[in-house]
Each structure stands twice: as C-alpha cells, then as structure tokens.
C-alpha cells in the first residue's frame, strides 16, 4: 500500500513538466527515504535524478519498496488536470497495475480521481559516485535559462569555461559567435540573485545546447541552479526543490573539436 500526500501539488506538476520531454518512460521508486526516479534519455547522453524526501510529504505511507513504471507524457497529462493550489495524493495498492492521482482543491469543494495504467519498464540504473568537482557555479536559474536560450539561437553547442574571473558561456554558428561572461557577484541584496564560483582548477567543457535547454524547464522549481564541472566528468545541473529534495541532470560532454 502506497499513499503519498503532497500539499504543494504544484511541485509535482512542475517536476513532470521539467522531465517529460527528456525521458518518455521511467520507474518511480518509493521507499522509506522518499519518492525518487533515475532515468536516461534514449541516447544515453543525459540522465535525470529526482528525489522528493518522505519528510516533505504531509502524509507518506510506503509499506514496502515499490517501483512504478509510468509514461511521463501520460502522467503529465493527468497532473495538468490538477489546479496549481491543489493537494495531490498518489495511491497504489500492492500488486496493482494502476496508480491513482487524487486532487483536492484547497477549500475541499472539488475532489478528483485520475487512475493511470502502470507499465513494465526495463530501466537501466547507473551508479553515480560522489565526486569532487573542479568548479561549482551557483547562479540564478532564470539567468542560466536565458543564456541557454539566447545561445541556442546562434549555435548548437555551448562551451562552459570557469576561471577565477568568472564563468563564460560561448557558442559559434553559421551567423557568428557569442560569448557571455558572468562574474562572481555575491554582494547583491538577495541571495538568489548571486553568482558564486568555487573553483579548485579551471575547467572548460563543451555540451549540446539542446539538452541544456531541456534541463532549464526545471527553472520554475528553484530560483537557483548549480552547475558542477570537472574536466573528466559529465556536468551536473541541479535545481534544489525547497524542503523536499532535488532534480539533477547529468550531461555527457562533447569531444572538443
């Protein structure tokens, strides 16, 4: 028996909007720790890891570890039917091949049940070891989203270079080139507007902008994004989900031309 009640149901709506275009089908894993997911895109270039900790739910009942295969497009369709202020409860019985989403309006005057078919998914799980990254950039998520969008109108790839001067995002395409430098800036009034760079050695990596733009669909989940870079590792693009956990995207680099 599984029953997860999330008062801030909009979080789950935002999570699905952030990942449904990257991954078609995925297993959601429920355990005492929380509600989690790890899935790769079909080309094995990008991976999404989601954790919503059990403490973040108003009610969290998970009698035994359960893996539920869902089509994320269909799940997103169902969650779109929930209001932004609705409380969302997920329910599943042991051995059932369906999951039920219950939506309650804040005033309790509208209660909806949506039952979705589960599916068997042969998912590949990757072990992701803890790593020391050469550079960690923390910046406003809206700024990062803007940069990825702007650069993708010029080129297909972005070179992210971190030095002690700042973080540089560069692209080149048929019409020309673009370079955007964000300097460390931690003197702003609001912490969510700061750009903070922690660096042990300079790093420069090239990535496909198509994936970066897909990751920025998580922007509504957090005002801050963290980029963790090492010269010999995939980049980690992390959006923290307040009080609950995180959504992390891993992206393999391109070989520099």
């Amino acid at each position: 028996m599984l029953e997860l009640r999330l008062v801030q149901g909009s979080l789950l709506k935002k999570v699905l909007e952030a990942i449904k275009d990257l991954v078609n089908d995925a297993n959601f894993d429920c355990s005492a720790t929380g509600f989690s997911l790890q899935a790769m895109d079909s080309s094995h270039v990008a991976l999404v890891a989601l954790l919503l900790r059990s403490e973040g739910f108003e009610h969290y009942r998970c009698d035994r570890n359960l893996s539920m295969g869902m089509n994320l497009g269909n799940m997103a369709k169902m969650l779109k039917c929930a209001g932004n202020d609705d409380i969302i409860t997920l329910k599943a019985d042991d051995g059932s091949d369906t999951v039920t989403f219950m939506f309650e309006s804040p005033t309790q005057d509208k209660i909806s049940d949506f039952e979705m078919k589960l599916m068997d998914i042969d998912s590949e799980h990757l072990g992701i070891p803890e790593a020391e990254y050469h550079a960690i950039v923390r910046m406003p998520s809206s700024e990062f989203g803007r940069i990825c969008k702007d650069l993708s109108s010029i080129g297909d790839t972005v070179v992210i270079s971190v030095t002690k001067e700042g973080v540089k995002f560069s692209t080149r395409g048929d019409i020309g080139t673009a370079n955007i430098v964000c300097r460390q800036n931690n003197t702003v009034d609001k912490p969510e507007e700061a750009t903070i760079i922690e660096m042990t050695e300079p790093v420069s990596l090239t990535f496909a902008l198509r994936y970066m733009n897909s990751f920025t669909k998580a922007t509504p989940l957090s005002s801050i994004v963290t980029l963790s870079l090492s010269s010999d590792l995939p980049v980690v693009v992390e959006y923290k989900i307040a009080e609950m956990g995180y959504i992390r995207f891993y992206l393999a680099p391109k070989i520099e031309e």
Partner: peptide
Amino acid sequence: SNNQKTLLGFFQKV
C-alpha cells in the same frame, strides 16, 4: 553527432 560522449563511458550500470 558522433563527437558526443555518452554517460556509459563515465558511470557503471548497476
């Protein structure tokens, strides 16, 4: 494109 690495070159399947 063919100069794109994959995650399987970095992380092990478990």
